[in-house]
């Protein structure tokens, strides 16, 4: 039995909005520490890993481990029906074949209830190896989203070059090229506006902007993003 109540639905709305282009069908793995999602996109180019800790819900109850197989396009449609400030309760019975979602407006004058059919999603759990990255860049997430969007006008791929005291985003295509250089800024007032480049050694790698733009949709969830790069290993965002 799972019953979890989120004080405001906006968090789950943003999460689903951020992953729905990448994840078709996947399991919400629920246990007493929270709800986890781990899924690759259909072309196996990207992996989404998410944990919603039990502490973020009130109350949170999960009697035994349960995997809820969900079609994320359906869940995204249902989440559109929730108001940002509604409190949201998700429930799944013992051998549930539906996930129940309830949205309650702040003054409880509107209660919406949806059931979405659950499906069997056989997904193996992948181990993400611990990696000591050559370069780790921390920057405002909105800025990263802006860079990915801007450079998409020039090319479908972006080269990210991390050197001492700077990170450069370069896009070159048939019509021309563009580059955006971001430099570390110390002692900023807002932590989220900080830019730091931690370098073990310089690194220069190319990535598909299609996926970076998908990842950047999660920018509304956190003010700061960390990019970790090393040769021959996936970019960690």
């Amino acid at each position: 039995m799972l019953e979890a109540r989120l004080p405001s639905a906006v968090t789950l709305k943003k999460i689903i909005d951020a992953v729905k282009e990448l994840v078709q069908d996947a399991n919400f793995d629920c246990n007493d520490s929270g709800i986890a999602l781990q899924a690759m996109d259909s072309s196996h180019v990207a992996l989404v890993a998410l944990l919603m800790r039990a502490e973020g819900f009130d109350p949170y109850r999960c009697d035994r481990n349960i995997a809820l197989g969900i079609n994320f396009a359906t869940l995204a449609k249902v989440m559109k029906c929730a108001g940002n400030d509604d409190n949201l309760t998700i429930k799944a019975g013992e051998d549930a074949d539906v996930l129940s979602l309830m949205f309650e407006s702040t003054n409880s004058d509107r209660i919406s209830e949806f059931d979405i059919k659950l499906m069997d999603v056989d997904a193996d759990h992948l181990g993400i190896p611990e990696t000591d990255y050559s370069a780790t860049i921390k920057m405002p997430s909105a800025e990263f989203q802006r860079i990915c969007r801007d450079l998409s006008v020039m090319s479908e791929t972006v080269t990210i070059e991390a050197v001492k005291d700077a990170v450069k985003f370069i896009a070159s295509g048939d019509t021309g090229s563009g580059s955006i250089t971001v430099k570390p800024n110390q002692a900023v007032d807002k932590k989220d506006m900080e830019v730091t480049v931690t370098l073990q050694e310089p690194v220069k790698l190319a990535f598909s902007l299609k996926y970076l733009n998908h990842f950047a949709k999660a920018s509304t969830l956190a003010g700061s993003v960390t990019l970790s790069l090393s040769d021959d290993v996936p970019l960690m965002i």
Binding site: D124, G127, A206
Partner: peptide, 14 residues
């Protein structure tokens, strides 16, 4: 040219 690689071989099946 840019060649997109997939992740399949990277992660360990647990």
């Amino acid at each position: 040219g840019f060649k997109q690689v997939t992740l399949s071989s990277y992660f360990t099946r647990r």
